[in-house]
């Protein structure tokens, strides 16, 4: 992905909700895109699937296996989706037709991309359900979506997404709606699928805890831009951007330490700037930044190398180092 911009209409003008995002995704890798609501992470994921909302304008470059996708027709996108790249999201219920069985829908997904007989498609569908950990795949085929528990519904959604063996899976908040003990199971399943199928995973999440244990690399987004890119180990060992540092500090951690000291959370003051009133020509995090200094209010930082990572912050501007 190169210089991806997604502009959305707001109050009669176009605003770049995703503003110049670059990243590479290697086969079999897990890349997490992290940020709070409104940072542009979900829009980014939708653009990657050719599913940007009506009225949005996507520019820049998205290439999968050397093929440029920006500017593709709806028909071309449809072929790419499912075959090369598939999506699962937070609410599996909305992905299924409530009046058709889980099996019928997976069979249909298989046949949408492969010319196979119904019986063969059925065999593949059962195999997918087994792969995602359905206790009794053959019986699972006959179930209606609403009869499944939250965790099984998400597994069925995964089975459907994997129906045509995509190379890339985009998982947008895949466990946010699940209970903690069930979310842990689904994340472990994603890890297993990555290893087993050499599946490439783009994990979109607000949850740094998930990222820590399930991603190789991380992109942190703020106000439509990448503010830090790092290997997961580096991000948690030595976060570079002040926003990443603040986000990590505000995360509630288990504490056996009691009383008043433990009750204070390191909150980030202020709020995320809304789309219509993002600061221009300055660092968009500057108004909330504890490490802000002179250049932050007069100039826009770019991405600078910071140790093994890169960060959009003047703290790492080599011109300012001396």
């Amino acid at each position: 992905m190169r210089d991806l911009r997604v502009e959305v209409p707001i109050g009669g003008r176009r605003v770049a909700a995703v503003d110049g995002v670059d990243f590479d995704l290697a086969a079999g890798e897990s890349l997490a895109v992290v940020g709070e609501s409104g940072c542009g992470k979900t829009l980014l994921a939708r653009a990657l699937l050719g599913l940007a909302p009506e009225g949005a304008r996507v520019s820049g470059s998205i290439s999968i296996g050397g093929r440029e996708l920006v500017g593709s027709s709806a028909e071309e996108w449809r072929r790419v989706r499912g075959k090369e790249i598939a999506l699962v999201f937070q609410e599996p219920a909305s992905a299924f037709d409530p009046v058709a069985t889980v099996g019928a829908q997976i069979v249909e997904a298989v046949r949408a991309h492969r010319k196979v007989a119904r019986s063969e498609a059925r065999r593949i569908a059962i195999e997918r359900l087994r792969e995602v950990g359905f206790p009794d795949p053959a019986r699972g085929m006959a179930e209606y979506p609403h009869r499944l528990s939250g965790g099984l519904k998400q597994r069925a959604f995964l089975a459907m997404a994997l129906a045509s063996d995509p190379a890339i899976l985009v998982a947008d908040e895949p466990t946010t709606a699940l209970d903690a003990t069930v979310a842990a199971q689904v994340l472990e399943l994603l890890d297993r699928l990555r290893l087993g199928r050499r599946l490439t995973l783009l994990l979109i999440t607000h949850d740094l805890g998930t990222v820590a244990t399930h991603a190789d690399r991380v992109i942190v987004m703020y106000a439509g831009r990448v503010v830090e890119e790092a290997r997961a180990v580096d991000l948690f060992r030595e976060p570079r951007h002040p926003y990443t540092r603040a986000l990590l500090a505000s995360l509630p951690r288990l504490s056996a330490r009691t009383r008043n000291a433990a009750r204070r959370f390191d909150a980030i003051p202020g709020v995320v700037p809304d789309l219509a009133s993002r600061p221009a020509g300055t660092c968009s995090f500057a108004p909330r930044c504890p490490e802000r200094f002179d250049p932050c209010d007069s100039d826009e930082p770019t991405l600078y190398p910071a140790g093994e990572s890169i960060a959009r912050c003047f703290l790492y501007d080599p011109r300012l180092r001396s």
Partner: peptide
């Protein structure tokens, strides 16, 4: 709420 805002409300 987002984590950074949740922290403010918890405080």
């Amino acid at each position: 709420l987002d984590v950074s805002v949740a922290a403010q409300v918890l405080n």
